[in-house]
Amino acid sequence: MTTLVTILTPGYADWETALINAASRQYYGLETRFATPGGEPVTSAGGLKVVPHMAVEDIEIDRVDAILVNGGTIWSTDDYPDISDLLRNAHAAGKTIGGICDGVMALARAGLLDTIRHTANGPESLPDTGYGGVAHYVSSQRAVLDGGIVTAPGTAPVSFAGAVLEALGMRNGDLDFYLGLYGTEHQAA
């Protein structure tokens, strides 16, 4: 069974990976799991408390198909969890890696954005990470998929969900229907 693990941190942005996890589980029958640093419960920016399935440190790369990094303010502080080795090893194993909003900073710190097309909240959100991919930065309001890596600004949970599912080989008419359904409010009236 295809398994996605979403990494959540204290103060994570509730809305950023809600759609990809709900659609994956409800419509596609995929397994969705959640991990936090140390396996500790975390509370979102909106006050939603989550008890995770596992600790980030216990993620077994060979048992997952995608690792998604949810955004949150911790990624722009000195208290961010260092998940660089996990992300590099997962990418080297051919797993889909996704980062949305400030979660993209974790991918930048891991060096995963240095040679591929990517986006983020803005180019100014990445330099303090040791980031070397400025030449590949794409200013986009939608998710960008390149080399099995999905990046998106925090305002793009719909296209992030679509790009993650596409990276997992699930691009079809059903996905296009769901993306159209969820994105209807953003179409010109």
Rank of each mutant, 00 (worst) to 15 (best):
97 I>H: 00
111 G>F: 06
160 F>E: 13
97 I>V: 14
63 R>C: 08
157 P>Q: 13
167 A>W: 03
102 D>A: 15
116 I>F: 00
115 T>E: 15
33 R>M: 12
127 P>R: 08
100 I>N: 02
94 G>N: 04
12 Y>A: 06
5 V>Q: 03
116 I>S: 10
22 A>M: 10
48 L>S: 03
168 L>N: 07
184 T>I: 12
27 Y>E: 15
89 N>M: 11
79 D>I: 05
175 L>H: 06
167 A>G: 08
100 I>H: 01
150 V>N: 07
151 T>F: 00
75 W>R: 02
139 S>K: 07
72 G>S: 01
184 T>Y: 14
116 I>G: 08
121 N>H: 07
106 A>I: 08
154 G>F: 08
9 T>P: 07
35 A>D: 12
58 D>L: 06
96 T>L: 05
62 D>F: 03
83 I>A: 12
126 L>E: 14
90 A>K: 01
42 V>C: 11
58 D>Q: 13
136 H>L: 12
108 A>H: 02
181 L>Q: 09
91 H>V: 07
89 N>E: 15
13 A>M: 01
41 P>W: 05
157 P>E: 11
3 T>R: 12
132 G>D: 03
54 M>G: 01
103 G>S: 14
94 G>Y: 06
42 V>I: 06
123 P>C: 00
83 I>H: 01
12 Y>Q: 11
152 A>P: 14
136 H>R: 04
64 V>F: 00
61 I>E: 13
158 V>L: 03
169 G>R: 01
97 I>M: 07
91 H>E: 12
175 L>Q: 09
167 A>C: 06
136 H>Y: 08
34 F>S: 03
92 A>G: 11
178 Y>F: 15
88 R>N: 05
63 R>W: 01
189 A>K: 11
64 V>E: 01
183 G>Y: 10
153 P>V: 09
1 M>N: 04
127 P>Y: 09
43 T>Y: 01
95 K>S: 12
2 T>M: 12
113 L>H: 05
93 A>W: 09
11 G>T: 10
59 I>S: 09
98 G>R: 00
136 H>I: 04
185 E>F: 14
189 A>P: 15
164 V>I: 12
139 S>W: 04
164 V>P: 08
51 V>F: 05
8 L>K: 03
77 T>H: 02
64 V>T: 07
156 A>D: 14
9 T>H: 00
133 G>T: 13
126 L>P: 07
99 G>F: 10
6 T>K: 00
119 T>P: 11
8 L>E: 05
184 T>S: 15
70 N>V: 03
57 E>K: 03
83 I>T: 10
58 D>N: 13
55 A>Q: 02
77 T>G: 09
114 D>P: 05
151 T>N: 01
110 A>T: 01
24 S>K: 02
135 A>P: 06
117 R>I: 06
152 A>C: 14
25 R>D: 14
75 W>I: 08
30 L>K: 05
65 D>Y: 04
50 V>D: 13
103 G>H: 09
142 R>H: 13
181 L>R: 10
130 G>D: 12
75 W>E: 05
79 D>E: 15
30 L>A: 08
182 Y>H: 06
114 D>G: 03
83 I>W: 03
35 A>H: 02
20 I>H: 00
88 R>D: 08
